[in-house]
């Protein structure tokens, strides 16, 4: 049910794009207005969310420690898993953000006949997630060629490296394929693994279907429809230079692609996709673990009712005396 709804939503978006551009020829709406609106929502939304998170105080220093603490000089501290300084905490975050360190921690063990223990790691989720995120980044970088004139050398380099397989004209890029595969894997995993399926919400399927549609339309545009790239570039440059162009000659599927991207941008700040920003603000990861070395201040700290020693001594005076314990007031 959740899956059907999400899939239906994405199909409806596709139909909308087809109807809008393929039939009604609303190119200005789909090629200019909606992208601008989406971008505004994206930037505004992300800034709003991050500012709102950052405005909430961190009252306590509560990082999760995943390695040996810094204590005695002859005990080797695990600097990346239990960072004591700001720099070490930064490096921990780098590992987390760029390499998905925590997902890599999944392990599995197996006992062979005779009791011999085999330990290994279970890397599927890590590999799938990493493949998806990195390829998505590379594909984004490649798309810069539509938005910058002249195309920077680094972008061209990425694009040519990406097409090293030299299959097809234009060359099939490795990252697009891996991206599509990784998304399929993440989707299948959600459908097949019983626990993950149980916890999944429509909000988990929808972005997957949306991203799959974006990649699929992109691949179609490049390899099947072979739309007029100069028209595409015209639209893209128009968006960047605030002199909108309609891009005559671009296939209607291009507008579907653009529409999906617009939806993704607009949807982003209001969804779980904000984990991209949230990971940097997670108090269990981004703090140095110098709890006992430097005092952390709670900005909203307030006095509480305690049981003072005086009250305690008053209540237990006789018993303290019996026990021969020294008193403040005899």
């Amino acid at each position: 049910m959740k899956i059907v709804i999400s899939l239906a939503a994405v199909l409806a978006l596709f139909l909308l794009a087809w109807l809008g551009v393929g039939v009604l020829d609303l190119k200005t709406l789909f090629g200019t207005v909606l992208p601008y609106v989406a971008l505004a929502l994206f930037v505004g939304g992300v800034v709003y969310r991050v500012v709102r998170w950052a405005a909430v105080p961190v009252p306590f220093r509560i990082p999760t420690t995943c390695g040996q603490q810094r204590s005695l000089p002859w005990i080797k501290q695990s600097r990346l898993e239990n960072p004591h300084t700001g720099l070490e905490a930064f490096l921990r975050m780098v590992l987390e953000v760029l390499c998905f360190r925590s997902l890599l921690r999944n392990t599995k063990a197996e006992v062979r006949p005779g009791g011999r223990l085999i330990q290994g790691s279970s890397k599927w989720l890590w590999a799938g997630a990493l493949a998806f995120h990195w390829c998505f980044l590379v594909v984004l970088v490649r798309h810069l060629r539509f938005f910058i004139e002249p195309v920077p050398g680094c972008v061209q380099l990425v694009a040519s490296l990406d097409g090293f397989l030299q299959v097809g004209v234009p060359a099939m890029t490795v990252t697009s394929l891996v991206l599509f595969g990784a998304l399929l894997f993440l989707l299948l995993r959600r459908l097949v693994t019983a626990q993950v399926r149980y916890i999944s919400l429509p909000a988990d399927y929808f972005p997957l279907f949306l991203l799959l549609s974006i990649v699929a339309t992109g691949l179609l545009l490049r390899h099947v429809v072979r739309t007029d790239l100069s028209a595409v570039k015209e639209v893209a440059m128009g968006l960047v230079t605030f002199s909108p162009a309609t891009g005559e000659g671009a296939h209607w599927l291009f507008y579907a692609h653009l529409f999906f991207v617009s939806v993704l941008l607009a949807y982003f700040p209001f969804s779980k996709l904000m984990h991209m920003g949230g990971v940097f603000l997670s108090p269990t990861r981004n703090l140095a673990i110098n709890n006992r070395a430097a005092r952390h201040i709670n900005p909203w700290d307030y006095p509480v009712k305690v049981h003072t020693y005086e009250e305690y001594e008053e209540e237990f005076r006789e018993k303290l005396k019996t026990a021969g314990v020294p008193l403040e007031k005899e």
Binding site: T107, K108, V111, A194
Partner: peptide, 15 residues
């Protein structure tokens, strides 16, 4: 019922 797949699928004796 939702635990069944986990119980049957995960072969790690400690997990």
């Amino acid at each position: 019922a939702d635990a069944a797949k986990f119980l049957l699928g995960v072969k790690d004796p400690f997990a």
